[in-house]
Simulated assay, not measured.
Amino acid sequence: MLHSEPEINDLEVMAIFRMALEKSIIEQKSVVEWSDKIISSNPENVPDFALELSISGNYGVNEAVHLLRENESTLENPVLWKILYGLVGLFYREKQIELSRACNAIADFANEIMSKTEYDLFGMSVSDAYFLAENGSYGNLENVEKSLLELTEEQLHLGKWFRSKYLMQKNEA
């Protein structure tokens, strides 16, 4: 199935980066590399956020998250959550993140986006299901994994697109 390339701007990219960085889905070096690419593509007209993010690698993840939050767009574009879900599904399938991190990230993404928009997203219960299955209270991890895979399946192409366009190196989070 052919998918069209989504339209997102730099401020929306920052929202995705911030949320993914907060949940350790991507590494800070991806943000720094992206900002460096912006700087090198137009050195005569560099946005302030690109300069700040470029040097944020010297100060740690919290500084990068703070800078991204200060400059990011709202979460109104519905493709943003789909990209985030796609990244989580992609990195989980590629064994770059474990099931617990994937489930918690999806739940946190859904919670934040639903609190700031009118979207009613699925995914908030996946971290609860993981917790209950992990401690043996209810369900099993195979069913949690199946739910996560089904929840992220339709967005995988967006995760792949975002990775190829904005994550310069293979994610190693």
Score class of each variant (00 low, 15 high):
residue 103 C to N: 08
residue 5 E to M: 10
residue 153 E to M: 03
residue 36 D to N: 11
residue 75 L to M: 01
residue 1 M to T: 14
residue 144 V to P: 04
residue 160 K to P: 02
residue 109 F to R: 04
residue 33 E to D: 08
residue 35 S to K: 10
residue 63 E to C: 00
residue 73 S to M: 04
residue 152 T to C: 14
residue 148 L to G: 10
residue 137 S to H: 12
residue 93 R to L: 15
residue 150 E to Y: 02
residue 94 E to M: 09
residue 7 E to H: 03
residue 156 L to I: 14
residue 65 V to C: 05
residue 134 E to Q: 10
residue 126 V to N: 11
residue 134 E to P: 02
residue 119 Y to R: 11
residue 168 M to V: 05
residue 113 I to K: 04
residue 18 R to F: 06
residue 168 M to Q: 09
residue 160 K to F: 02
residue 109 F to Y: 14
residue 164 S to P: 07
residue 6 P to T: 09
residue 114 M to N: 15
residue 77 N to K: 10
residue 169 Q to A: 07
residue 74 T to A: 03
residue 96 Q to H: 05
residue 111 N to Q: 05
residue 103 C to D: 02
residue 86 G to K: 07
residue 105 A to C: 01
residue 155 Q to D: 14
residue 159 G to T: 03
residue 68 L to Y: 08
residue 74 T to G: 10
residue 23 K to R: 14
residue 58 N to E: 08
residue 2 L to S: 03
residue 48 D to R: 08
residue 125 S to H: 03
residue 73 S to T: 15
residue 19 M to S: 11
residue 31 V to H: 06
residue 134 E to H: 10
residue 16 I to P: 00
residue 8 I to H: 04
residue 67 L to R: 15
residue 80 L to Y: 09
residue 50 A to P: 08
residue 24 S to E: 13
residue 123 G to Q: 11
residue 151 L to C: 09
residue 75 L to D: 01
residue 131 F to C: 11
residue 134 E to G: 02
residue 1 M to F: 12
residue 64 A to W: 05
residue 115 S to C: 06
residue 106 I to C: 12
residue 120 D to H: 05
residue 12 E to Y: 04
residue 104 N to V: 00
residue 115 S to K: 14
residue 160 K to S: 01
residue 162 F to G: 03
residue 22 E to W: 04
residue 92 Y to Q: 04
residue 100 S to I: 09
residue 43 P to W: 15
residue 89 G to S: 06
residue 83 I to A: 04
residue 18 R to D: 12
residue 132 L to Y: 12
residue 76 E to K: 11
residue 134 E to F: 09
residue 104 N to L: 13
residue 44 E to M: 14
residue 72 E to P: 00
residue 97 I to Q: 01
residue 67 L to W: 07
residue 163 R to P: 06
residue 122 F to E: 14
residue 54 S to E: 02
residue 55 I to H: 15
residue 142 E to Y: 00
residue 8 I to R: 10
residue 10 D to T: 09
residue 105 A to E: 01
residue 98 E to S: 05
residue 171 N to I: 13
residue 58 N to P: 00
residue 128 D to Y: 09
residue 112 E to V: 09
